[in-house]
Design a protein around this nucleic acid. Sequence first.
RNA 1: GGCAGGUUGCCCGAGCGGCCAAUGGGAGCGGACUGUAAAUCCGUCGGCUUUGCCUACGAAGGUUCGAAUCCUUCACCUGCCA
Length: 423
Amino acid sequence: MPIDPTLLDDLEWRGLIAHSTDLDALREALAGGSVRFYVGFDPTAPSLHMGNLVQILTAKRLQDAGHTPYALVGGATGMIGDPKESGERSLNSLDTVKEWVERVRRQIEPFLSFEGENAATMVNNYDWTASLSTIDFLRDVGKHFPVNRMLSREVVRSRLEAGISYTEFSYVLLQSMDFLNLFRDHGVTLQFGGSDQWGNLTGGVELIRRSDGGKAHAFATPLVTKADGTKYGKTEGGALWLDPEMMSPYAFYQFWLNVEDEKVGELLRIFTFLPRAEIEELEAQHAEKPFLRAAQRALAEHVTTLVHGAEETERIKAASAALFGGGDLAALSAATLGAALREAGSTRIDGDEEIPPVVDLLVATGLAKSKGEARRTITEGGAYLNNVRVEDPDAVPAADQLLDGTWIVLRRGKKNFAGVEVH
RNA sequence: GGCAGGUUGCCCGAGCGGCCAAUGGGAGCGGACUGUAAAUCCGUCGGCUUUGCCUACGAAGGUUCGAAUCCUUCACCUGCCA
């Protein structure tokens, strides 16, 4: 596989390098042949999310340019948990971590190629950490970590007041040891990760230098935030999961479609493989006619295709067009309507019974968390049945309101749709 | 181990015997305006069989006609001293 010499320039243009060790040295190394690199994923949840996707796609970019990936799942580091500013993590059980390791592994695999000269390798740091003795750990690894330096790290400093356990404080040693092991056993000389990992990345580079006198590189990708600096998905309804069980592909697509104008260019560069010229063209179009949201549409389509596949994306686009088309829902064919609602999320109810009140349907479809909330939504004028506002909190759908004799389209607010299928 | 302070709804944070499902801010949700955007404004924001009832202010007891508010014990957190 030939090496793509433009890789680093492309990464820089995409804004994917927020921090790095000596960039010129890295450029030289990348030009010199297939560089073995690694990126780690800790199993802190049953699914990876948008932040991890940046790493996965960056790994793919490197592999596509001829370099050799080692994707690491943190069976060991996931048992410990890296320190975060908000406070101490609660430890997960070994069984939980093992299960999540498997799930994370399966999520990463489709993005990388495990064939050819620069085939990817999956590794688990549990393999070389579990059997390590405390004495060896303290002598061989701990000796290279000055506590005064560790204390000066931003995350650690921020925790000194509220408190930080020795467990989390030690995390950086484990991750650094991973890099050293991969360096020794596999010739891995590059690690990258999120910018919040910068301390852990440089920890590994230093350990390799101090312990083996070796030369290794690291860079950090930027933290993707909203225009106001807050994290995506942090506040509204949880993280943006890649697992379709945890976040429906439809909701995933809708998220990207609704991205703020200010961010769409940045996100296109980070999350799509569209070439530079195409992205710049989209940005120009968007600047001129933002209301068409061509850039958001491209973004949503590309990212959803990457994560959930082209077929699913087509179904979602059709569903979105049907639901947001603004046309008469009754004019849609039964097949189109049913398909759209199944994408958006639908609930079946038994048609032998009477149709339940709208309030109950809002709860049953998940549009409202409780009957109180459902009732409130109606009072506030935010509930719609077949795109007609529901005025009465006690409203009950009539039999003749079933579209094609089967479907009820419920909407909460401007863009939350759900179907009810009456059987 | 000693002393002091703290633990309130998703988060921060008031309340310090009845008028408290609990001020205020943030987040969320709905409406208006738009472009399924941002900003702004308005409303809303524990649950239910909803003019009332139930559950809630770290946990368990107690005082009282009545407690988030007072007392006791326990748990946890923070600071100072050992």
